[in-house]
Structures are given as structure tokens and as C-alpha cells.
Design a protein around this nucleic acid. Structure first.
Lengths: 317, 317
DNA sequence: GAGGTGCGATAGCTTCTGTCTATGGCCGAA
DNA sequence: TTCGGCCATAGACAGAAGCTATCGCACCTC
């Protein structure tokens, strides 16, 4: 009974749903319209579900049909991508996936990426190479890297960006700093002490954005120390050169601590980035994988607060 | 080229992979062995991927084949479940999905569930009903509820449990409490002041687990106030009856605040639970949906700290 | 209201293909 | 050597998917 449903049908269903019209769907499928009608009718009868309601001016989709339509579109795309990727694996034409990453990206993110890749592309090698975001983007443009894990923001039409992690942005300071007695750091206090930054050349866009955000809460920091790695930053903070802003998940030296900034809710976000016109055959599958996660994730997305009060549920006792 | 691949093939591939043998797979599929051989051969030739390596004593799976095999198994199952569910929707035989929830579950989790259901089962009604976890489990056994969103732990062979949210477990206290000046609460201090608990009858397993965890860090609390809702707890804390442990995401009254417990990393986890032998036709699809999220999720799962810290334990709210 | 237009359904024929049975080749165990 | 297990090949056949031609229906225009 389920076996009546073949990919062929799913493709037809997707085309009909997208054109809203058997005739045009048939054209798009290079098929005669009666063939299409017949296939769909037999399918509907076979599985006992009416998918489309025929009108004189096209078709409407039933609720049950909508379920099938969404599924069909997804399923066909997934099939094609998997086969494409498996073909590449089989042909041995999968070169190592060359991933660039910033040393400011948390290791567990890289680990997750590695694990996901290993399970999706068994036996296919990866190469990781660290570097500045600016340099890594350049290397992706030169095609000496396939993809990267980088701190946001990354803008530009040429990049496909999927956020994969997010952590609060916090003030890093010495644990024995008097300010560490406070729960949160006030912007006014931060303004005087925030002096350690990443080298702006490493990720100009992120630096600019950070300064912009600081300006919004009235901070125009004196940028006096430039670091290139998280341990540089920690060393600088430790040696008393000032405070820094870091990803709260960064593993910290014992002598250091972090505090949130009062009245804001900033995050350090990390994304999986690759050129829109990807070259490496694994990228569509990987991207699909990430999108699924972010899609309609139940809970976990604190940013969903938007609908805070539209919640109306039938309460039964 | 992709269109050569039909569900029929995926079913065959899955059967061959599972039996390791064309002949037995053919039997299982009620098919003559040559038909199967021919189908697979044509498929392999068509898409240009060798999936199986034929030996005199059966078949091995190539790496590219492995990708396709895993995909095939998943895809066939997904198709069947979707059709099953759509059939139920179409037949109007989908009774309202009756969800029980504990009032200690954060609303955004319920909202996500509602949204996911609405998008997977357009037009199908839900009914929510609040209550104690113990009572809700009982009602699921009696089949007056289909599924529930509950704090972990939930054990027992009869339940299918999928974690859907997790938040740090924190100490809830008055904002003007002297201890609120501290960043973290030491277990020794907590021991004296922790007095407010959920009614143990509401979720005996969680209560027991909480006491066990507290014992591990040397706390044997005096359980002097019993609450049945988060607002009870907040009221009790506010009125000076002691401290409580709560999900850090709980919306707090202004006069209250939370602090982490020093040296541990406990979380309050929430799960989607239903009887293993589910009755409601949407449950396979919903569960599949949640599993996808949790599967190989790249980062985002703060609860993954387990690796770093054995002390981390699944807990209650 | 007559005729035109756009859409889907039906009928009948053709072609393709998935399945069957029968058989062959290969390898290892008895 | 022979037998048994396994997969591949060959040829026949039936069913299914496709095509063309045509119909029916609703709506629009004049």
C-alpha cells in the first residue's frame, strides 16, 4: 500500500503544487497532461488520500495534501543530493573537505562538524586549517578552502551562511579584579577598562560591528592591545592590560573570569560558511543537515520569544 | 538521472543490506532473485555508483553504498509514516492530540511543540492539559492522554522519551538576599537555606534523583515547604521561607534572582514522552521530527557538557 | 445565449519495464 | 569430483506508464 508511492509521484505532486495547475505541471515535467492526471488519480485512490481538489481554474490542496506536498518537495531534493554526494564518494572524486576555522571558534563546534561529516561521508578525509577569518574568506575565494567555521557577521552575496552555534558575549577580566565582585558590568565601567581587541584586520566586519554595538550603549573604547588568539587575549587580560569581550564558552584560565554586560544581551555567533556556488560535492548535503537542525527545532531557540503572548491553547482539565 | 532511483530501489537496497544476501533479500521481498539482481544492477549502472560488492558468500557494502543504504532505510520509513499520518488526517480520523504538561515546563517548549504539530499536521486540533507528572503519566497509561511534555528523569520501558530542552538548574533567592551578592552559591551555604521543594508526590522519581544529587555534594536538605507550581515556589522564596532550585529559564518575579551552584553543572531537562506503543497516528512523525533535531546536531546542545564533566546529571524542574 | 477559452477527465493504443522461469558460472566444502 | 550456495544472464510475458484524440464543464466575452 505504501509502495504505490514512488519518487515519480512525489515529483509530480511537487510540480502540481508549485504550478497550481495540472496542465502547466505536465509541461514542466515534459509529460502529457492526461498521463499526469491519471497518475495522480490512481495514487490518490490507491493510498486513499485526496491531495488536490480540482477546480475549473486549477487545483487547491487539501490539508492532508499539504502534508504530502511539503514532504514531497523535501524528499525529492534530499534524494538528489544524496545521490550526487554518493556518486562523488564512489568516484573517489571527493577530495578532502578543506575546512578553515578561526581560532576563536569553540572546539566543540569543530568536533561536531567533524563527526557529522564522518557519519555522512564515511571514509572521506577532512583537512582543517586555522587562520584569520579575513584570510580564510580569501582562501575560499581562491578555492584553496571549501568551507569554514567562522564568527559572524559574514556578509556578502557570495557566501552561504548557516549559523551553528551561539554563546553569550561576556567581559573577560581577572578573577581578582574588584569589578568581578559585581554580577554584571555596567557599560560606564566597561568603557574605561575595555582595551583588548582582536586584530581588526583579522575580521574587519566583526570588528566594525562590535564597535558599532558598543557605540550604541555609549562606549567608544580605546583600542590599545590587539590580540590574534584567545590565549593572547587571556594573557593580556591576566597581565593587566585591560578587559576584553569574549565568547562565554571559551575555556578560561583559572585566574580569569567572565561577567555579562548589564542591560544588553549580545551573543558571539558561529557559522558554517561556504561559497554560494559550492565546489565540494558534500556541501549541499552538509548544509541540508545544518538547516534541518535549525529548522523547526522544538525549544532550544531562545530567540523565539517573539510569539510570547499569542499562545492560546485549549486547556482541558 | 536521479529519477532512476525510486522507492522500490530503496526498499530493495535496504533489504539486501539487512540480509547481506541477494537471495534472502529476494525472499523477504517476495521477489525472484534475478529480478532483484537485475534491478540493482541497472540502478548501479544508471547512477554510476557501485553499492554492493558481490562475493560468492554474499555481498559487502561499499562506502558510497553505505551512504545510500542509511539513506534508503530512513527514507522508506519516513515515507510510510508520512503517508500513514496523512491518511489519518484525510480520513478525519485524527482525534485531537492530547498533550499533558507539567506547569514546570517552560512555555516556549510547549509553543514549539504546538508550532511543530501545526506545521506537520495542518488543521489538526490539539488539547493541552496541565498537571503533575505522576498524574500525567497515569493518564497516559489510561489512554486519556496521548503524550506529554515533562521534566526528566522519566524511566520505564513503557515510555518513549525524547529530550527537547535543557536549561541550567539554579538557586532561586530574593534579590535582596545577602547571598545574591555572590556569583555562585557554595553547597555549604545552600545546605542551610534550601528548603523549598516541589511536592514529591508530583514527580517522585525526580524528587528522589534531586535528593541523590544533593547528597553527592554533601547536602541533606530540610524539606520544609512543598510547592506545586513555579509561582508557589516564587511566592515561598519571596516570603522568606528559604531557597529553591529552579530551571534558570523560569520567568522570575522582579524581587527574585537566580545564582548557579558552585562546582556543579546541573541541568533541568525536559522531554517529550509517550507510551512506546503509541496510539495517536501523529506520534511516529512527531518523534521522527524530534530525533532529527537531536541527532547529530552541530553544537547548540549545551547539555553536551557531559564529556567534560561527569557530575552533570539529568534532573528535574 | 452562442461561441471561445482554459482546465481536467476519459478512452484506446503503444511502448517500456519489472517480473517470472530456466539456466549458467563461480567458488568453497564435503 | 560433486554438491550446494550464491549471483548473473537470457528470453518470455503482463502490467503499467506514456501518448494522442476527444469529451465535459465552468466561465468569460460579445
Amino acid at each position: 500500500m505504501f509502495d504505490l508511492v514512488e519518487f515519480r509521484h512525489l515529483k509530480y505532486i511537487a510540480a502540481i503544487a508549485e504550478t497550481g495547475n495540472f496542465t502547466r505541471a505536465a509541461e514542466r515535467l515534459f509529460l502529457a497532461q492526461p498521463s499526469l492526471s491519471k497518475q495522480i488519480k490512481e495514487l490518490e485512490d490507491g493510498i486513499g488520500i485526496q491531495i488536490f481538489v480540482r477546480h475549473h481554474d486549477g487545483v487547491r490542496i487539501t490539508p492532508a495534501g499539504q502534508m504530502i506536498v511539503s514532504y514531497a518537495i523535501e524528499a525529492v531534493k534530499a534524494r538528489n543530493e544524496i545521490i550526487q554526494a554518493a556518486r562523488a564518494v564512489h568516484g573517489g572524486t571527493i577530495p578532502a573537505l578543506r575546512i578553515g576555522f578561526s581560532c576563536f571558534v569553540q572546539q566543540d563546534v569543530l568536533r561536531s562538524l567533524r563527526d557529522a561529516y564522518a557519519s555522512l561521508f564515511p571514509g572521506c578525509p577532512m583537512q582543517f586549517s586555522g587562520g584569520d577569518p579575513a584570510q580564510i574568506l580569501r582562501r575560499m575565494e581562491e578555492k584553496s578552502l571549501d568551507a569554514a567555521v567562522l564568527p559572524l557577521p559574514i556578509s556578502g552575496e557570495q557566501w552561504t551562511v548557516d549559523q551553528v552555534a551561539s554563546a553569550p558575549l561576556a567581559v573577560c577580566m581577572r578573577a581578582d579584579d574588584p569589578l568581578a565582585q559585581q554580577m554584571e558590568i555596567q557599560p560606564s565601567e566597561l568603557a574605561k577598562r575595555l582595551k583588548i581587541f582582536r586584530n581588526p584586520d583579522a575580521h574587519p566586519e566583526a570588528h566594525a560591528r562590535l564597535l558599532e554595538m558598543l557605540a550604541e550603549i555609549g562606549i567608544e573604547p580605546e583600542v590599545s592591545s590587539l590580540a590574534t588568539t584567545p590565549s593572547d587575549i587571556q594573557w593580556m587580560v591576566q597581565s593587566g592590560s585591560g578587559m576584553a569581550l569574549i565568547d562565554q564558552k571559551t575555556p578560561l584560565d583559572q585566574s580569569l573570569t567572565t561577567r555579562p554586560i548589564a542591560s544588553v544581551n549580545w551573543t558571539a555567533d558561529t557559522a558554517f560558511v561556504h561559497p554560494v556556488h559550492a565546489e565540494h560535492p558534500s556541501l549541499p548535503v552538509l548544509t541540508r543537515h545544518f538547516r534541518k537542525m535549525n529548522g523547526i527545532a522544538p525549544a532550544k531557540r531562545t530567540s523565539r520569544r517573539k510569539h510570547a503572548d499569542d499562545l492560546q491553547m485549549t486547556l482541558l482539565a
